[in-house]
Design a protein around this nucleic acid. Structure first.
Length: 981
DNA sequence: TGGTTCACG
DNA sequence: GACGTACGTGAACCAG
């Protein structure tokens, strides 16, 4: 295929088009070459699904149209060509068939948009080019060379890094999404070599996206170093024997030919036969009737409005004749209003998991089977074995993994095809209490289903088969259910965790949300199946056909999500984090939850009644001090009493119009001798302890295990931390003496002790490491009191003259650094004015300039990419970092500062957790990990093994990161948690 | 359901 | 100079 008939620049162009050049125009005409193919995908991912009135998907078309308008309006380009890839195969495939072979087919709803996008180019009267046997990039390279030789400036509009090799003086790259210009300097920054050597670097480093092999084990950094040292690829390969590092030398010697092939793959051909002469690439005034008609067909009403508004502003009547085709400048409407595409450039970078390329062809129809006999089950197991990957989901009669009964299992091995195996269903009409297999006479018989034991006996070998990958959504739950039936599910993958790794902080990772986001599929909701509220039934009472539709869909969707997300994981280079940090944690945390922690109910009960008693007394006193009776537990009423009726000073109202009565406010009043304020504070503390801890915790003790089983959420936080719910065991009191008592109720079982090991100052150590602050690093190396050291440096007080007051200030600043410091926040913490706090911060940064640089660099990175990264490579997406409102942006910037620190600490303890179990096993120790509290791990240990266990755990924790700054873990043990610290 | 408060790291 | 604040969580309670 040559130039497509939709473009028709040859027929429309007249000799007059090139007049300005022939007339010897003094400023040579700038040429813009638009990488159309690259754009289609960017536009597709940037916009949500969108259909035109006839149902045809057009989200990529709209994105593309907006981009074209913006380009023409903002750049006032005179010469533009939009260039597309012709076909999947090109000359590169002749000598390397695998080139781009890992590129999946484009998504189904993108395919029809390719032709429409060419219509768009035509509607704007722009040349639309492609060349069979070559890629768009080759055409771009050729035109760029031709124009460059005529001394014309060239701008390549693309975000494809493969085009960076074309950059030179007079040829620049423009990233249309970010609006960033890329010249030789930026290329050198990215590749570590000047543009003309980019191909050599790429040839060595390879490219997994395009399936360019490169030399295994050599990345961009190493490649740039080698090319810089040896000058070019050929010289390097000839002299590879001289390389000192044995591994690198061997790799290069072995893979020299691969590198040469890679170079041929990545080097663009700048001498291809162009379909349209260079001087015909001109912008012409679009035919507005035609343009608007076309926009109408697409249903792009907002674009039409903009075109019309612009034409009216220009005095060009829509009804009037189109201006002469020879008009040299683009007359496309200016778009001041933010288009959908515009807004992308202000929003966070495109979601990494935005599905690129239809990895999963979505089925037109689904086939969900009810499996009620062993033959059918065996057929499914066989299919799973053949496929090597099976999505698994369990249905239970409860949400608590330690007690929920297994009701059924669903499996899927190919998109659109799944089964549900009911195992413990009962007839919906069974009277409550008659379940459980006991024949109480009146109960109707259960529906036909395979006996639980028989089914599990067949499933066990499959679920434990090392050659079959079991995929689940929140697979920790299913793992626990199966574990209770003697099945150790492995190996596993978890779509929720993959999604989390790709989009930490970007969105939720529940299945319903993921199905909608990636598959455009609305799932059947659990509530629709079981009902809600009082009339909710347990899943074992759901009629089988309904249960099948719901449960099989879960497995089906999980499998389809797995294909999409696994692919994105590779593309986003997040495989390592997922496989080394997140996935190994699933069984570890599952075991922690299943073990639970022993809580002494008697201690809690005693405390509850003690608290209740004291609260009653306090409340009586409070009422006596108040002008009238009120509800002490109501902040609203308290505020009215204190500030409206008692007219106390220092009150301020929040945005909801209510008086603030938080502890800070009450403490202020108490200091002035307001008795009621202190009493309310005391009452509140007890109220909190009683309702949130002593009462609630006692209720959470599981009837069958006698222990408390929290649930650790693996994909909940924006930084990579775990969180704990039902109950939250990560916020058990410790800071006050009264609260600390609650920890005495957390005990070890007979013959055991609780061992607590926690990282000392891990976040501050990470700051020292990541920001590279020599003074801080040295202090940690030397084991100096870090806050005192900081105080000494910032306030100029020698260590031996340090006072606790000065140290306290330095400590507050150190913490402030971790939180993304602000004068206001620090001032509030220290009880000084924001101005005074600002002066401290300034002094601090003068002493530790690396910190300020680090913070600025981090913010700039977040602004550019939309995310920040931890030391182990986790990406934390920061919403609002490009917000114009200063307050919101400042908030996002503080998050951007904090996330890499908090997130790295989270990564490190996760890695330690995964390593501790094998380390204990190797040392023949029987300790059991029970809880993780961000920088602390709690174990239940046989008394005789405590010291040895402490040593093993400390050593694993301290060695979990391998940093320059030492990590220190401290251990303590006792019969209860309060004293183990 | 949203706002407030407060427990933890 | 305005913006409205320290970062990350979850649970209980009140009030509408």
């Amino acid at each position: 295929m040559t130039a497509p008939d939709t473009a028709a620049p040859e027929t429309a162009a007249t000799p007059s088009d090139s007049r300005s050049l022939e007339a010897g125009n003094t400023s040579p005409e700038a040429l813009y070459l638009v990488d159309g193919s690259g754009f289609i995908f960017r536009a597709y991912h940037a916009l949500p699904p969108l259909n035109r009135p006839d149902g045809t998907p057009v989200n990529a078309v709209l994105g593309f149209t907006n981009m074209l308008m913006k380009l023409l309006a903002e750049l006032k380009a005179e010469a533009v060509a939009v260039i597309f890839d012709a076909k999947r195969l090109n000359f590169r495939n002749e000598f390397y068939p695998d080139y781009k072979a890992n590129r999946p087919e484009p998504p189904e709803d993108l395919r029809p948009q390719f032709a429409i996008i060419r219509e768009a180019v035509d509607a704007f009267c722009l040349p639309c080019l492609e060349l069979e046997g070559y890629e768009a990039d080759d055409l771009i390279a050729t035109y760029a060379r031709m124009a460059s030789e005529q001394g014309r400036p060239v701008t390549i509009v693309s975000s494809d890094k493969d085009l960076m090799q074309l950059v030179r003086d007079g040829v620049r790259l423009m990233d249309p999404m970010k609006g960033r210009l890329i010249g030789p300097e930026e290329v050198a920054e990215k590749f570590g070599v000047p543009p003309e050597k980019v191909v050599d670097v790429q040839a060595l480093a390879g490219d997994s996206v395009d399936n360019v092999p490169g030399v295994p084990g050599i990345g961009v950094k190493t490649a740039a170093q080698l090319i810089t040292d040896y000058g070019d690829l050929e010289t390097l390969l000839e002299r590879a024997g001289e390389i000192k590092q044995a591994g690198r030398r061997q790799k290069l010697l072995e893979n020299a030919e691969l590198a040469r092939i890679s170079k041929r793959l990545v080097r663009l051909d700048d001498k291809v036969p162009v379909p349209v002469p260079l001087d015909r690439l001109r912008v012409r005034e679009p035919d507005h009737h035609k343009l608007i008609d076309w926009l109408k067909v697409q249903g792009f009403r907002s674009v039409i409005h903009k075109v019309e508004a612009e034409l009216a502003a220009d005095g060009t009547l829509v009804d009037g004749a189109a201006p002469a085709p020879a008009a040299p400048a683009a007359r496309a409407p200016r778009t001041d209003a933010r288009t959908a595409l515009d807004s992308r450039s202000y929003a966070p970078a495109p979601a990494p998991e935005a599905r690129g390329d239809g990895v999963v062809p979505q089925p037109d129809r689904v086939e969900y089977e009810l499996v009620q006999d062993l033959d059918a089950l065996d057929r499914w197991i066989e299919r799973a074995r053949e496929a090597g990957t099976v999505a698994v989901d369990t249905e239970t009669d409860g949400l608590t993994p330690v007690s929920a009964g297994l009701v059924g299992v669903s499996l899927s091995v190919e998109p659109g095809r799944a089964c549900y195996i009911p195992l413990q269903h009962i007839d919906p009409a069974t009277p409550r209490g008659a379940a459980g297999g006991l024949d109480l006479g009146g109960a109707p018989p259960p529906p036909p289903q395979i006996a639980l034991a028989d089914a599990l006996a067949r499933l066990k070998p499959l679920l434990e088969d090392p050659a079959v990958l079991k995929v689940g959504q929140n697979v920790k739950f299913d793992w626990q259910i199966f574990a209770r039936h003697g099945i150790a599910m492995a190996p596993i993958d978890d779509t929720m965790l993959i999604s989390y790794v790709l989009g930490t902080g970007l969105h939720g990772h529940g299945m319903d949300e993921l199905a909608l986001r990636h598959l455009g599929h609305t799932t059947i909701k659990y509530d629709e199946v079981t009902g809600t509220g009082k009339s909710r039934i347990t899943f074992d009472r759901v009629p089988l056909d309904k249960a099948r539709d719901y449960a099989a869909e879960d497995a089906d969707i999980t499998l389809r999500l797995h294909r999409v997300l696994k692919h994105d994981l590779v593309r986003q280079h997040m495989v390592t984090l997922y496989e080394t940090i997140e996935r190994p944690l699933v069984p570890v945390v599952a075991r922690m939850e299943s073990r639970g922690v022993l809580v002494d109910r008697a201690v809690l009960r005693q405390m509850s009644s003690d608290f209740a008693q004291r609260m009653l007394e306090m409340e009586a006193e409070i009422q006596k001090l108040a002008p009238r009776a009120f509800n002490v537990g109501s902040p609203k009423q308290l505020g009215e009493i204190l500030f409206d009726e008692m007219k106390l000073p220092g009150g301020s109202k929040g945005k909801s119009g209510a008086w603030g009565t938080d502890s800070g406010v009450l403490e202020g009043l108490a200091e002035q001798g307001v008795e009621i304020a202190q009493k309310v504070l005391d009452w509140r503390q007890l109220s909190k302890l009683k309702s949130t801890y002593t009462d609630a915790l006692a209720e959470q003790i599981d009837a069958r295990t006698g222990r408390v089983h929290t649930s650790f959420a693996l994909a909940a936080t924006a930084t990579g931390r775990l969180s704990s719910t039902d109950p939250n065991l990560q916020n058990i009191p410790i800071r006050t003496e009264e609260g600390r008592k609650i920890r005495r109720a957390f005990v070890a079982r007979p013959g055991h002790l609780l061992l607590s090991v926690d990282y000392s100052q891990i976040e501050l150590r990470l700051v020292a490491e990541m920001a590279g602050v020599p003074a801080l690093r040295r202090a940690f190396h030397d084991g100096i009191d870090i806050h005192a050291m900081t105080a000494s440096q910032v306030f100029g007080v020698p260590l031996d003259q340090m006072t606790s007051e000065i140290r306290r200030k330095a400590k507050a600043i150190n913490f402030g650094i971790i939180y993304g410091i602000s004068g206001f926040g620090l001032g509030r913490q220290l009880g000084i004015t924001p101005g005074e706090a600002g002066a401290f911060i300034k002094q601090y940064f003068e002493r530790f300039p690396e910190l300020q640089t680090y913070m600025e660099t981090t913010k700039a990175f977040a602004r550019e990419h939309g995310y920040v990264t931890t030391l182990l490579g986790r990406r934390c997406w920061i919403q609002g970092i490009r917000e114009k409102a200063p307050a919101r942006r400042a908030y996002a910037e503080r998050q951007a500062i904090n996330a890499p620190i908090q997130g790295t600490a989270a990564d490190i303890i996760k890695r330690a957790m995964a390593r501790i179990e094998p380390a204990l096993a190797a040392a023949k120790l029987d300790a059991a990990m029970l809880l993780q509290v961000h920088d602390e791990l709690l174990f239940e240990v046989p008394e005789a093994q405590v010291e040895e266990t402490a040593a093993v755990v400390r050593s694993v924790m301290e060695g979990a990161a391998g940093l320059g700054v030492p990590l220190v873990a401290e251990a303590g043990w006792a019969g209860n948690w309060a004293e183990a610290h």
